[in-house]
């Protein structure tokens, strides 16, 4: 396919031609793996994220005290209570396991949702151009100017009960703008390439051109966008839950921090109420950001030498 040929021509400009050439698709995939396995940032970032994801999945196996089993109140971390107990004697480690699950779930919904919305609007905008583009672009700018968390608070103020799914979707509705801007610009540059023009000339429908010609060429880029939005959603959800606007009756890392603040963790010096959830968020989101930088270096040959 011409696609990879042109891609390579632009990507390799300036770099010495170390046997670039025949069998482009296979080469590229091999090259990607080659650099991916040698990129420390990517390996470290992904390992940290994976560790937490695995922990969220299999964590309940290690839980020794059910969510509602009361033990000694405000117990310091110990062999029986890994992360201590809360104000009323509930196991913080148990809360942490379930909270991590929900926080990752909300982040995932938020990240996926925002990527899908931004992708759809960005593709349409960049591909159609003209008035549609102008309209969507204005919409994006408007949404971009309204602070997301403030809008979420306004919505939550009227909508009293949310579920993790709705929370994730609401977050997606306020964060998609980033991905749309980026994908719109990328689509613009791809649309001007030969192969899209060819597909257009041969009478392919817009939707199938976007799905079959444009999206695959941006898959690496889309993945980068998704990673950033995933991390961003986890952070937004933490703030949202901390303000007490999250799902009622659930448990999340943000809710754990809210409880810590509400039950005077500061004067009581019960640091184990808020240190684990916050540290987990920083690790996961930091890991995602690090993996993003690493992947960027892998995908973008210009950055590899740095």
């Amino acid at each position: 396919m011409t696609v990879l040929g042109t891609d390579e021509a632009t990507a390799d400009r300036g770099a010495p031609v170390a046997g670039a050439g025949a069998g482009a698709p296979k080469r590229r995939r091999f090259e990607f793996l080659y650099f991916a396995l040698r990129n420390k940032k990517l390996i470290i970032g992904l390992s940290v994220v994976l560790l937490f994801v695995l922990f969220a999945i299999f964590g309940p196996l290690f839980v020794q005290h059910p969510l509602t089993a009361y033990g000694p109140p405000r117990h310091t971390p110990s062999g029986t209570y890994y992360f201590g107990t809360d104000y009323f004697g509930l196991d913080v480690f148990t809360q942490f396991v379930y909270g991590l699950r929900e926080s990752l779930f909300v982040g995932l919904i938020g990240g996926c949702g925002a990527t899908v919305i931004g992708m759809t609007l960005g593709f349409i905008s960049g591909y159609k151009g003209g008035l549609i583009d102008e309209g969507l672009n204005v919409l994006c700018n408007v949404e971009l100017t309204i602070p997301g968390l403030v809008l979420l608070i306004l919505i939550a103020g009227f909508l009293h009960h949310t579920s993790p799914l709705i929370e994730g979707l609401l977050i997606a509705c306020t964060t998609w703008t980033w991905s749309m801007r980026a994908i719109r610009a990328q689509t613009f540059s791809l649309v001007s390439r030969d192969f899209v023009g060819l597909a257009r000339l041969s009478g392919e429908k817009s939707r199938s051109i976007i799905v079959r010609e444009i999206a695959p060429n941006m898959s690496s880029y889309l993945f980068l966008v998704f990673i950033l939005l995933f991390g961003g959603s986890i952070l937004v959800a933490a703030s949202f839950d901390f303000l007490g606007l999250g799902p009622a009756g659930g448990m999340s890392l943000g809710i754990m921090m809210m409880n810590a603040a509400d039950w005077s963790a500061l004067p009581l010096h019960t640091w184990w109420w808020f240190v684990p959830p916050g540290a987990a968020i920083t690790c996961v989101v930091g890991g995602l950001y690090l993996a993003n930088v690493g992947l960027d270096e892998v995908f973008n040959p210009k950055l590899r030498e740095l």
Binding site: G5, A9, P16, V17, A18, G19, G21, A22
Partner: peptide, 17 residues
């Protein structure tokens, strides 16, 4: 096109080895 000179089949050998 800079990459393929029409008329000469094949490509230059890799310079790595």
């Amino acid at each position: 096109d800079e990459h393929t000179l029409v008329g000469i089949p094949g490509r230059p050998p890799p310079l790595l080895n």
